[in-house]
Design a protein around this nucleic acid. Structure first.
Lengths: 264, 264
DNA sequence: TTTAATCGTATAATTTCTAGATGGACATAC
DNA sequence: GTATGTCCATCTAGAAATTATACGATTAAA
């Protein structure tokens, strides 16, 4: 049996269970019961199924501690990073501040997003008024939205700008909600979005000037062994890279070695 | 009927449906079927239930476009930010780079995390070797882990350091996986973690020097009307705040006005 | 006109899950 | 040492959720 053979609901439960075993190193029926509101019997069944799936490195029951303990060589069924597993490790109260730093979340207008989404779907151009920090609000322009992207901080809109004759990244929040949002079909095919369809392979190395020992720490911290750390993204998103990775700050511990481009 | 009365599985489906209606402004049975692998009949039932829950601002079916369209005044059943809803708006291929910029994910050692978690649970002190960028690897020290936290970038460990006689934030990745991890009970009660139990209320305002128009954009972008934006966190996490919000960079558009502290 | 894609409904069969009872192993308190 | 509580496990009957299948309606496009 495979994880994918299961129904969505049970698969979710087993993945949760798997994460508990991976990051806590232990798990109980109670964890499943509290998290999913299922009965003890079902939780017991889930454990049976999990054990049958994890045949290579099954967890063992420790009657003294009354929990299942992950095997030393535990192999996660579904790989996960620590960041994604954070909520498994923390337990926040309702009325106290959370244990994670709040993010600078940009608010977005529901209706604007929906209109953009529908323009993407139907391949229409939209008339919008856009405000940039530098030049202020424009008088309205036609754009052809193609997709949503993210720089990890906020959501961007990738669109062809007829005004500038090129593809650009827009922040949906800066689109005036009172724009006309007039629609029109795109008469002649849009040019290819070359930057989007170009793979950018960025090679990073510990910052010049770090001691050997410090460089070693940086390598372990970012999980690479050799000289370089390879990160892959799209050329269209590369602009955001340095800020997102903090390469432009004083305390940066990584720097770019080189960047390769190849069409996708 | 309330959303909370439903079983976990169906609640998940309705929340997904709700997000589609909120951010796409439209939804189909097919969305549910593709995302959860349920039958058309079940998807139809889910729509019935959703409509009964969203009695105040129900979506309507548009036979021309063959989809449900969210009401203009659509009220989400479960509020969500745009960032969380990003995956609803994007559709990534398997073998092309994703449409989101990769994050600088720190790798973490499973076993180390599990040991820390278990020490937190059982209230034990642990002997670890810690490497800091400045002072290099120490010879080992006793710490009393209390909880995991996050600065939004990577996961931290909050622990009482016996060596320094105070609570500190540690990066689990910098704990040597070959530490002894010797356990010992905590003999006398730990002091209160004052910084953790202090609420930090940070008041931000558009950066001095911005034009009125620019300030207006910033206000809309971060979703506040009046003079200040109020952000709440814990004093123990405040150290990470400026970096996370980019207040320390050249292009910052927000600055701190003041900070209030109050015990939790 | 036909085909395809939506929507909807209904029924019976199947799977999943619950409720409630029972028993065993162990730790702790008395 | 015995009682108690808390985990684990399992069993069965029944409730609930879900599927499979079939059928009908509307609309757009080939």
């Amino acid at each position: 049996m495979k994880l994918d053979d299961l129904k969505h609901a049970q698969r979710e439960r087993l993945i949760f269970l798997d994460r508990c075993l991976t990051w806590r190193g232990m798990a109980n029926r109670k964890d499943l019961i509290d998290h999913f509101g299922i009965s003890t019997a079902q939780a017991a069944l889930d454990f049976r199924v999990y054990l049958s799936l994890a045949h290579s490195t099954p967890p063992t029951y420790d009657p003294v501690r009354k929990t299942y303990i992950a095997s030393i060589e535990h192999e996660p069924l579904a790989p996960s990073g620590l960041t994604e597993a954070l909520d498994i490790l923390t337990s926040d109260d309702e009325d106290t501040p959370p244990s994670a730093l709040p993010r600078p979340e940009r608010k977005a207008d529901r209706r604007t997003i929906a209109l953009l989404h529908q323009a993407i779907r139907s391949g229409k151009a939209l008339h919008v008024r856009y405000t940039s920090m530098s030049s202020g609000t424009d008088e309205g322009q036609w754009i052809a939205p193609t997709r949503f992207t993210s720089d990890g901080e906020s959501v961007h809109l990738r669109a062809h700008s007829f005004k500038h004759g090129e593809y650009r990244n827009y922040l949906p929040i800066r689109i005036d909600p009172d724009s006309s949002f007039e629609e029109k079909p795109i008469d002649k095919p849009l040019p290819e979005d070359v930057d989007w369809n170009t793979r950018a392979i960025i090679w990073l190395r510990p910052k010049t000037g770090l001691s050997d020992e410090q460089a070693k720490v940086v390598r372990r911290e970012f999980g690479f062994e050799g000289e370089w750390l390879r990160v892959e993204t799209r050329k269209a998103l590369e602009f955001f890279f340095d800020r997102r990775w903090g390469l432009d700050t004083v305390g940066a511990r990584l720097e770019r070695a080189k960047t390769d481009y190849e069409p996708i």
